[in-house]
Design a protein around this nucleic acid. Structure first.
Lengths: 136, 136
DNA sequence: TATTGTTATACTCTATAACTATA
DNA sequence: TATAGTTATAGAGTATAACAATA
């Protein structure tokens, strides 16, 4: 009965994966969300703060402290948009990029481990395809 | 880059599934964990409290309040084992079983929805197989 | 009026240490 | 000494309401 529960399996798998992620990165003082923000900004320099929050499924009110933390560390800067003075455009700094470079090997190792557990890229892509059906 | 992130996809999918679960059951005042405990006890009457906790990936310290809640509602009873007076054996009550009966249609509907999203039982079993590789 | 970012706050989940009663 | 259950507590993560500045 419970063996069929998709939600239950999802929870257990997600817990295991995040636990490993945290262990890998904890020495660097990084959280999954921080990493996701930095990575996202490399591809979307100047993105709106609320856009980034929504892309990551985080409410804007809770995202403020996350950006504060990254800004205090010097990895991100807020710049008021000149078009719309309400919005904060987020930019990753050189220090942020350097930090990300330092982190990428750990990130890749993490993903390689998952790849090995799953049994290859094809299987991983298959899994991702299935997961997307659950929330797209 | 982030598109390949298994952990990220897992998180989003798990969030979406749990959100729907909560919406379905919230009117009944039930949480995913409570439901899992009741369901598990139907197959394992008299299981040790710490065994149930571990089976669900919950630390025994945090499991106490969960059992308290179910016991206060009359769905579960704790009985001290006569073999080892340290352990609490958990039993689902008749009221618990009746409550579970009431809940099963909602549960089935929830799983049917996931099944439809995924595209059938074969696909679901495939997904569960892949998820198990990540934490077994 | 509506939206962006912000603050404050509360609630849940999770993690850790220490206690008790039993073994 | 070790284990099961418990208590207390602290830290994340998440959710909601209200406010200021701006549109």
């Amino acid at each position: 009965m419970m063996e069929d529960a998709v939600g239950y399996r999802l929870r257990r798998a997600q817990l295991a994966v995040f636990q490993h992620f945290n262990e890998s990165f904890s020495a660097k003082g990084l959280r999954p969300t921080d990493f996701a923000v930095l990575l996202l900004l490399t591809r979307n320099q100047g993105a709106k703060q609320s856009e980034v929050a929504e892309a990551l499924g985080i409410q804007r009110a809770n995202f403020v402290a996350i950006v504060d933390g990254l800004e205090n560390k010097g990895f991100v800067v807020r710049r008021k948009s000149e078009v719309d003075r309400r919005v904060q455009a987020l930019h990753i700094t050189d220090a942020g990029l350097a930090y990300l470079d330092e982190l990428m090997p750990i990130w890749r190792e993490h993903e390689e481990r998952l790849l090995a557990q799953l049994g290859g890229e094809q299987v991983r892509d298959q899994l991702i395809g299935l997961l997307k059906r659950l929330y797209d």
